[in-house]
Design a protein around this nucleic acid. Structure first.
Length: 268
DNA sequence: CTGTTGCGC
DNA sequence: GCGCAACAG
């Protein structure tokens, strides 16, 4: 091997090293931007963003949300729960933090202190256990709504567990959830965080060929009724909230699926 | 799993 | 305010 050839090889190796290093840095920067909620999630077949009635959509690494400043909480939180993301890792509960990506200023956790209400996760911590970052991110106050403890630890928890069951059974589901920010509501704390009178959840499974949907609307109180008694059509929720849940979906399919309050195809 | 409260620093 | 332990449905 000539000296010249040797130098060429060394030069190529150095260039590769520098390139890899820069690529690595870019990846880091991207992750940083996402966690600050500044980037835009690309529209994939698996990612459905509802419309925002507030004009403030924020993207985090593990979920997106639309923040309602008057009510100091999200009007919806949306995320895909893949089967591969289901995890048993048990992270320690971090402290709640103000979501700095909310330009109008997200609520402080102090509003909930001694209020008698739980800091209820909208995107459950248990749905984001595939990484420490994703898990800890669910403890931003933009992902929290005041919930009665009996409700949160009761039927709402049961529903969240059912979502994980479906994510496993159907190889992933897309989830949209929030409180109904309508009508007369009690408020808590100095910042007057609204206490929703109802909570909803909308699911779409687009992994089995033809998409299927199911929606739940629950009064803000615990119940012993079976989950399927709370199934409503997506149309009902859209009328109630003013949110268009699947604007990207083909209109014909959207109309048909959203009108249905049948839970056929969803195994309880 | 879903959470809160109390205590020491 | 943070870290940790104890407790409740």
């Amino acid at each position: 091997m000539s000296k010249r050839t040797l130098y060429s090889i060394i030069a190529i190796l150095i260039l590769l090293g520098v390139y890899s290093y820069e690529y690595f840095l870019n990846e880091e920067e991207k992750a940083e931007v996402v966690s600050e909620g500044k980037s835009t999630k690309s529209d994939t077949n698996a990612y459905f963003l509802p419309t925002s009635t507030t004009g403030q959509i924020i993207h985090h690494e593990g979920y997106s949300l639309s923040y309602s400043e008057p009510h100091e909480q999200a009007e919806w939180v949306a995320y895909e729960l893949k089967k591969s993301q289901l995890s048993n890792s048990n992270f320690e509960r971090p402290y709640f933090e103000i979501d700095k990506a909310v330009k109008t200023g997200a609520a402080h956790w102090r509003n909930y202190k001694n209020s008698g209400y739980d800091r209820g996760h909208l995107c459950p911590a248990a749905d984001r256990r595939y990484s420490q970052l994703a898990h800890d991110e669910t403890f931003l106050t933009s992902n929290i709504s005041p919930q009665k403890h009996d409700f949160n630890a009761g039927i709402w928890n049961t529903l969240e567990q059912k979502v994980r069951y479906w994510a496993s059974k159907y190889d992933g589901v897309f989830v949209i959830t929030g409180g109904v920010l309508n009508g007369k509501m009690k408020t808590i704390g100095d910042e007057a965080v609204s206490v929703p009178n109802q909570f909803y959840k909308v699911l779409i499974d687009n992994n089995s060929g033809k998409p299927k949907m199911i929606a739940f609307l629950m009064p803000h109180e615990d119940s012993n009724k079976p989950l399927y008694e709370f199934v409503v059509s997506v149309d009902t929720l859209e009328k109630l909230t003013g949110i268009d849940f699947f604007p990207e979906l083909d209109d014909a399919i959207e109309n048909q699926l959203e009108a249905s309050s049948s839970y056929k195809g969803w195994s309880f």
